[in-house]
Design a protein around this nucleic acid. Sequence first.
RNA 1: GGCGCUAUCGUCUAGGGGUUAGGACGUGAGAUUCUCAAUCUUAAAACACGGGUUCGAUUCCCGUUAGCGCUACCA
Length: 488
Amino acid sequence: MPQDTVSSAKLPRVRFAPSPTGYLHVGGARTALFNWLFARHTGGTFILRIEDTDFERSSEEMVGGILEGMSWLGLDWDEGPFYQSKRLDLYKETAAKIVAGGHAYPCFCTKEELEQRRKEATAAGRPPMYDRRCRRIPKEEADARIAAGQPAAIRFAVPEGGSTSFNDAVFGKVEFSNAEIEDFVLLRSDGIPTYHLSVVADDIDMRLTHIIRGADHISNTPKQVLQYRALGAELPIFAHVPLILGPDKTRLSKRHGATSVIAYKQMGIVPEAFRNFLSLLGWTPGGIKDENGKDREIFSSEELIKLFTLEGISKSNAVFDNDKLAWFNTEYIRAYPVQALLPLIEEEWKLAGFTATRSKDEIAHAIELLKPRARNLKDFATAFRSYFADEYEIDPAAAAKFLTGNVPTLLVELGDRYAAAAEFTEASTETLLRGFAEEKGLKAGALINGSRVALTGQTVAPSLFAVMMALGQKRVAERLKKVPQPIA
RNA sequence: GGCGCUAUCGUCUAGGGGUUAGGACGUGAGAUUCUCAAUCUUAAAACACGGGUUCGAUUCCCGUUAGCGCUACCA
């Protein structure tokens, strides 16, 4: 046995820390997924932390939405959810420690004053950074003003010279001149921490080892590094993940359509498909070949966990491609065993207020038949309705294409033949139809296509005789006899 | 504007000092003729630009351009 066995203290601890100011969006979900994958890959701990210190914009409802999205994606966490709103004491203590160390000071400027000065600075072409005027207030005076009840925010005293850098696991060394970093607010005058303080306080308190988050946080990182130093805490490893963009290459937002993860569920996307698709946005296992020597794209959760590394994260932003997601979805639906698909389909039926009037076996048979042609779970409640219930619409376009001439009339007669047929197998139904077509002197194809529309209401369907087997003799006969006749 | 980051087909990406620059999605064409958004075959499609370094750069370095991010008592 190696004497230096892995102690649990060494295992990675990571977190997903959404702000409940909206539903779980695609970008957040991807961040959560990467953290989860990393934790599961390394045997580490995945923590969920709700960053709800913006009381005006946060809501419990949004927390519920985020949790719902996480569970839909199958991302389970080991600790939490922790709520920052319940940990305010920790932030106050942390701020006090930074002040005590001489790295922060009270600031008496009001929000209005600051805004005014910022406006002036911008107008004058100067950088709109805080001018640090309160930093020069003597300690006695500051103490006196606080004692007198004047509200004060706590600002971090950023070093005047030099630079602050960190080694990012994705981007490498990133350096910022301290002159570019303003004396940011740690604690607001009402005692509520800002993001800058609460992340650091929590990340230290929760003993996080790796901070995997969106690249939009790169610019914030030096502010956090400064606090780690002021607190004498060990720096975690930062890994910034490139952003997900819309088709127009701007940051993905509502303008691009669905951004909430739950919206994809509602569109009939299978969670594993979504997860697989998301995992490959901004990350690559590095050219894993399939048996044909082609790069693989379909990976099970287990494979993803096994393959995931921080090194595989790419540096450039990725565009969210709905077409590719749709492809993953069809691949997953196709590959799913019926038994796995059934509960998902049943949920769709429920949502559509639909009741399948079929036996379990008939349902399973139909699903198996339909899987290769499904684009999403919704299809089973809409386009494929005729396989599961007897009320269904005939697509007018399909009727216009194939229920023409004397075909409808002949289909009625064909219905009688099927009703009277002694045998009803895939082979026998085909023989019967082809014989009937020959007898009537027209191409079998015309009757096949017409039958398909009459039987399913659709032009997209499996092989007609397979469809007949799924429907059964009685329904085939009835539906053919009920085929709508052309009005003229 | 300032600061930071990035740059391979339309999109996701593999690759990496010498390659016919590979795959996938999407798109085009053909096949199947029992339809189809299914299936099969096939085609078009990329190293942003300019300088270096080098025998040789798509690959390494610098610059330009473009894109994105940050620039709050939001997170």
